[in-house]
Nucleic acid binder design. Structure first.
Length: 253
DNA sequence: CCAGACGTTGTT
DNA sequence: GTCTGG
DNA sequence: CCAGACGTTGTT
DNA sequence: GTCTGG
């Protein structure tokens, strides 16, 4: 799955890379530990209803900010979003929480790396803990996570600004990821960005985009458990973990 | 009909 | 809002 | 995803 | 053990 990632590219770089023509996001500092419920960048098409932008003509893609954790429009309060941080691609179109968004409100969530925790066992099968790994593109470019977004209004406070929230679509692991974890985010090829964002794309075509990206795009390596704590941040979180000390003979030798 | 869920992950 | 379970 | 909490009452 | 918050 994908429960933590990094967002280190600048607004200007993202606007350029994703061919965004309207920026509706204040710059944010580089983040090495983006966690659920955080405010994140995402790219979405402007809609005729003005959900992303006002009614101006011309621009097509907007870079905006969203709360990570999709809050369905019918939710009583936004807390349900904490459990909607990912959307499994399998059966996604029949899930009440995601159905509307996958049909009409797809977005791209940029990320520079994501984290996955590998469960590890001791020699005797006892649990030893979880080892976090960072996964990033070999070419150094930001990744485009396939995302969904929603629009939520508080029925008790119609004056309040609407909340825009998002979820990351997940799929099975590719060969690189398989030893670490059995799920991974859908990472879109640049050639598929337009089709993913376009609400007019045929549902079958959308389905075919929600597949594991090729292993060859990525590199993965173990990192320290500093990332476990959401309050920790900084480039040290994606530094490769030094190899463990040579196996000492244990209690006896 | 109304009430209640609406999600993912990992683990046994 | 819409579907499922009772 | 991991870390950290894990409760009630009454009132608007 | 299970849920909530970040």
């Amino acid at each position: 799955m994908c429960g933590r990632y990094t967002s280190t590219s600048t607004v200007a770089d993202l606007a350029s890379i994703f061919d965004v023509d309207e920026v509706r996001a204040e710059p944010m500092p580089a983040r090495y530990n983006v966690a659920p419920t955080d405010t994140v960048f995402a790219v979405a098409l402007r809609s005729s209803k003005g959900e992303i932008a006002d009614g101006k003509k011309g621009p097509r893609r907007a870079l905006g900010t969203f709360r990570w954790g999709l809050v369905p429009s019918w939710a009583k309060d936004p807390s349900v979003g904490s459990r909607m941080i990912n959307a499994r691609c399998e059966g996604i179109s029949s899930k009440p929480a995601f159905r509307a968004a996958v049909a009409r409100r797809r977005c791209i969530i940029p990320a520079d790396a994501f984290y996955e925790w590998q469960r590890r066992e001791g020699r005797d099968g006892k649990k030893v803990g979880k080892l976090p790994h960072a996964i990033r593109r070999r070419d150094g470019r930001p990744m485009a996570f396939a995302g969904l977004w929603e629009f939520w209004r508080d029925d008790d406070d119609l004056e309040a600004p609407a909340l825009r929230s998002c979820a990351i679509v997940t799929t099975g692991a590719n060969e690189l990821m398989a030893p670490i974890h059995d799920r991974m985010p859908v990472v879109l090829a640049a050639d598929n960005w337009a089709a993913w964002l376009d609400p007019g794309t045929d549902p079958g075509a959308v389905e075919r985009l929600m597949v594991p990206a090729p292993s060859e795009w990525f590199e993965a390596y173990a990192v320290s458990t500093l990332v476990n704590k959401v309050g920790n941040d900084g480039p040290q979180l994606i530094e490769p973990l030094p190899p463990p000390p040579p196996a000492s003979g244990g209690p006896s030798s």
